[in-house]
Design a protein around this nucleic acid. Structure first.
Length: 184
DNA sequence: GTGCAGATCCCCT
DNA sequence: GGGGATCTGCACG
């Protein structure tokens, strides 16, 4: 499996978010190899997008959103959850990212279930925090390069099914944009 | 099936 | 000091 090249992420975040559906997220942790097909994503912009972490300018937390595209932006939220994004942006844009909200487990489903804890046979990675927990993605992966074959990267893959565009989840300001993309 | 409370803490104003 | 790109369990029906 070939990692997606950096140029893939050097476009508008909405286009990148849409095109990430069906690609494969690959994670190596300890002896476990885990992977899954991306089934839901969400695009975030910059000064034009009040829902984005980058809306108010660069801070220590969102620094990655202003950096090289194709790298990981991981943030901690609600006191207990991590969420995993890929930095993306079109030409002339200052910042942007795509939140990976869900994957369909392929390899290493047993390891993901272990990482999620007891009683998680179903719904292993069908939410941003669940996905991060299942694949052991946290602050240590901040800034990781996802365009090279390593312990965390995004590989080519084929999209199956149709794309649905919806309003972003949990967003009040900047609703109206249909920047949540999912497979159905 | 839907709805709500609680967990829990980092970041920004 | 307030709120958040969330998840889980429990109540209700």
């Amino acid at each position: 499996m070939r990692p997606l090249p950096r140029a893939f992420y050097a476009r508008g975040t909405a286009a990148v978010a849409r095109d990430l559906l069906g690609r494969r997220l690959v994670r190596e942790h300890g002896r476990a190899l885990m992977s899954g097909a991306i089934t839901e994503t969400e695009a975030y912009g910059h000064a034009d997008d009040p829902a984005s972490h980058a809306f108010g300018g660069m801070t220590e937390r969102n620094r990655a959103m202003f950096g090289e595209v194709g790298r990981a932006y991981v943030y901690f939220t609600y006191g207990m959850h991590y969420c995993f994004n890929v930095v993306a942006r079109g030409p002339g844009r200052g910042a942007g990212a795509v939140l990976i909200r869900a994957v369909r487990p392929e390899e290493g489903a047993a390891a993901m279930a272990r990482n999620r804890g007891a009683g998680a046979a179903r719904g292993l990675a069908d939410g941003p925090a669940k996905l991060a927990q299942a694949m052991r993605i946290s602050a240590g992966q901040y800034g990781a390069d996802l365009t090279v074959r390593g312990r965390l990267y995004i590989a080519d893959g084929r999209r199956e099914g149709r794309v649905r565009a919806s309003p972003r989840v949990g967003v009040s300001r900047g609703a109206g944009r249909l920047w949540n993309f999912s497979l159905r």
